[in-house]
Design a protein around this nucleic acid. Structure first.
Lengths: 346, 346
DNA sequence: CTCCACCCAGAGAGCGCTCCCAGGGCCTTG
DNA sequence: CAAGGCCCTGGGAGCGCTCTCTGGGTGGAG
């Protein structure tokens, strides 16, 4: 690769001149070369090589009205994005898919609660062709902002204002939280457990409520005392476990809405000398890397393919952006399957 | 904010027409309004408001040759970016600083070993004004690629080919690894420990070697049998601890090059019934969130301000990009201080 | 009262690219 | 052999913006 000449980079014009063709032809070659005779293609390609030509993105965007970039919007307070490999993994999947389609990833992290205005401006500015958003909380202003900007968007996780998979035509990708929870609880029941408790996640996230719904699907008449709530953290899981043991010392199983809380619960059970799974069986959710496998005993849990979800989000968005398939209209939502992973805790 | 009209967004031309001024004046107002009389400023501003005008970024970039975006390049295999809150935290800091300067963050994750070519093309394409890179390994091809592209770049962590802080004029931000290590070992010595072992990190990362150097600074004549190597993971820390205990069962302290390995070591010590810190004192490094504080006993460790480092990286880059201060030339590297955090493990 | 200087607004030229449209060459067919 | 058609190439307009340069108006000074 030729060293960058100081100052300006070569333009299409320069390439055309060197190849002895017109700018239009050079452009055609650079963009695939369809409808250009081979000898000319070769000449242009050689000129590109020799000059180290790289198309000017801004100029191209100006006329094509496509930026080749997609925003990833994460509107979460700091805490979660750190301790949770969830986002990193999701982003990894997104990045993989975008890269494969030659699309850039612009990361938009919300800085403080008043920062929505900035996001709105950015989207309205047409900097990106579309967006992938994680809107986890009820009453999140983000979806409204996004809708108003007219930016094609796919959500990660079921937005709170939807209730059915196909609702409102807002495309999203989510794990089968309810089905997974059902499978977990059913598994505990099949094990012969009769007093199955649930440590739910925050009430304002659909993943929590969906999992709670799944629990209730199986245990239609569950004692309310068997249900507590945590915040998806280790600490809150420990706290919840204590609460449950106070209320129902006779419980013989716990389904925690995520692995972090399950590991907190496990710690409390160990501290109290309650053998797992002999006396209390425990099932988590997520199959979180370097958590589920590393507890003692390792967690039986519900696995979801987080990276795959990220990939899918990107794919859905890209497909929607592709005008060729625009006939297919807005992409539909996708619910990805979950699987039960049996380890030692249940 | 007015709803986006279907199809095209309003242009400066439209704003100018509505305000009854020329495009040039409208442009001036949009860009700060210097040198325009107040009544006209007001008229233009009103037109902007009414039309919902947002400048076209591509057009602006085309003429100003500034993109208002910075690339963050992470060339790490998946594993680390997941389990390590390090990057997330660094990115948080970067994002904060960039946002404050109205600059966008384009995330470039390396997808597979052959992906450097793509990064090179991207940087050469002038999509971004500068880059922030994490090049952790010796023989990483990334720095060469970046240099060739001519993209102003600040590194996170001391690149391997530098040896002194001001070397080669390649700006980077790093914690005072050597000094921190020195403090850790000195602390153990002050505690009266005489056979202090070290679990080093991977040999091909400067943070590892710098910490090892710090250890050696204090223990000039350390028995080589007291030094092992891990891969900055919990598992490798456990393995290293076993190795050390085999070789030198009489050791009375361990300095691990990061908290993850320290927690692995701790597990082994507990399994073997060796009381910490009574018989073996343990010091980690990083003060990693949800690790150092959550072990049993909690880790004494060396804290570094990761988010602050990210912020600093962005600030350095932005300052270098700002032509006003271009006189100051390439930004200098910064070494951020570390502090010893005393907990129960030593 | 006149002249000059200064300040502010507008006209116009591009930035580098894509894409429409017209025209030229060559091959095919009558 | 001539005419028609088709494929390929080049010319040129224009995407939306910034910025230089020119010109007009106003205020102050002589």
């Amino acid at each position: 690769m030729p060293e960058q000449s100081p100052g300006s980079r070569p333009t299409l014009e320069a390439v055309a001149a060197r190849a002895g063709v017109s700018r239009a032809t050079a452009s055609r070659v650079v963009n695939g070369g369809a409808g250009v005779r081979q000898p000319l293609v070769d000449k242009v390609l050689r000129a590109v090589e020799e000059l180290g030509y790289v198309p000017n993105h801004a100029a191209r965007t100006l006329v094509t009205r496509r930026t080749g970039a997609v925003a990833v919007i994460i509107a979460e307070p700091e805490i979660r994005i750190f301790s949770d490999p969830f986002f990193s993994q999701q982003i990894r999947g997104i990045s993989k898919e975008l890269t494969a389609h030659d699309t850039q990833l612009v990361l938009l992290l919300l800085e403080g609660p008043g920062d929505f205005e900035r996001i709105a401006r950015y989207l309205a500015g047409g900097h990106v062709d579309g967006a992938l958003a994680f809107s986890l909380h009820i009453d999140d202003p983000l979806p409204a902002i996004i809708r108003r900007s007219g930016t094609p968007t796919v959500y990660g996780g079921r937005p709170s204002w939807t209730s059915a998979p196909s609702d409102q035509g807002v495309p999203y990708v989510d794990a089968d939280n309810r089905g997974g929870a059902r499978a977990a609880v059913q598994y505990l029941r099949d094990l012969g457990r009769e007093r199955i408790a649930h440590i739910a996640g925050p009430r304002d996230q659909t993943s929590s409520t969906d999992r709670l719904d799944g629990y209730r699907d199986v245990l239609l008449d569950a004692d309310p005392a068997l249900i507590t709530e945590g915040e998806f953290t280790v600490e809150s899981g420990a706290r919840a476990m204590k609460e449950l043991l106070d209320r129902r010392p006779d419980l013989d199983a716990v389904f925690a809405a995520n692995d972090l809380m399950a590991s907190g619960a496990l710690r409390v059970l160990r501290e109290r000398g309650i053998p797992v799974p002999d006396e209390v069986a425990l099932v988590g959710f997520d199959d979180m890397v370097s958590v589920a496998e590393d507890t003692d005993p390792p967690l039986t849990t519900i696995r979801q393919d987080v990276e795959g979800q990220g990939r899918l989000m990107a794919r859905l968005l890209l497909r929607g952006l592709d005008k060729d398939s625009a006939e297919t209209h807005a992409p539909a939502s996708v619910i990805t399957p979950t699987t039960l992973v049996r380890r030692a805790s249940a």
